[in-house]
């Protein structure tokens, strides 16, 4: 029983990282997508570079960099903040690419119709483009979100007691494999809930195409 309590505490750390990363990386990803599509060359080049960097290197390396390299140049961050920074920057890059593709999949005619009705660019984005984009991007966003649940386990290298690390500690101490099985079940429950949630969202946003 004690094992389960410990593991629930680990789950709390996992969920904390998961939710905070999601809350920051989604809007940041949308901003980055707009930056990537910006007509200002400097902005779009910079975003391209950022996305390339984040998607082209392992998340593990990014975590280690934030955790070990930043303090060397005098930037000291609490463990949790360091982990969140790496996760958020990494996931924002993936979300940015998804959002960019979503925005680009919307036909020119939608912008033109909005313009001939007198809508400003901002109104067009907010009322016409983004709501339609959400529907297109839900499936890939759902995939990334489920990946994030599992990727949170990478923080075990930062000595934070997330679900997986707690499980490993107990296994090593008691020579009993059960905590691994329990951890697997916990991860499965989390991803199942997410899958269900996204299905609901997709149904909601899909109600207009038949």
């Amino acid at each position: 029983m004690h094992t389960v309590v410990l593991m629930l505490e680990g789950t709390q750390v996992t969920l904390q990282i998961f939710f905070i990363t999601l809350i920051f990386s989604l809007p940041l990803g949308l901003l980055a997508a707009f930056g990537r599509l910006s007509s200002l060359k400097l902005v779009s080049r910079f975003m391209e570079f950022y996305i390339w960097l984040m998607r082209g290197t392992p998340l593990m390396l990014q975590l280690l960099f934030v955790y070990f390299a930043l303090p060397m140049v005098g930037i000291m961050l609490p463990d949790l903040v360091a982990a969140l920074l790496a996760f958020t920057l990494n996931y924002a890059a993936y979300f940015a690419e998804i959002f960019r593709a979503g925005i680009q999949s919307i036909s020119k005619g939608q912008y033109e119709a909005a313009k001939t009705l007198g809508m400003t660019h901002k109104q067009t984005m907010r009322r016409i483009i983004i709501p339609q984009m959400i529907r297109y991007v839900l499936p890939p966003v759902s995939n990334e979100t489920i990946n994030l649940v599992k990727d949170t386990s990478l923080i075990y290298i930062l000595a934070m007691n997330d679900l997986l690390r707690v499980a490993r500690t107990i296994v090593q101490r008691e020579f009993d494999m059960t905590p691994f099985v329990v951890a697997a079940v916990f991860y499965l429950i989390m991803t199942a809930v997410l899958t269900w949630g996204f299905k609901k969202l997709e149904a909601y946003y899909g109600k207009y195409d038949k």
Binding site: S107, G109, Q110, E112, A113, T116, L117, G118, I128, P131, Q132, R135, Y205, Y208, D209
Partner: peptide
Amino acid sequence: LSCTGMVFQQFNLFPH
């Protein structure tokens, strides 16, 4: 241009 309206070949209704 607020006094003009336009109808397109492809309708361009807002699908959502």
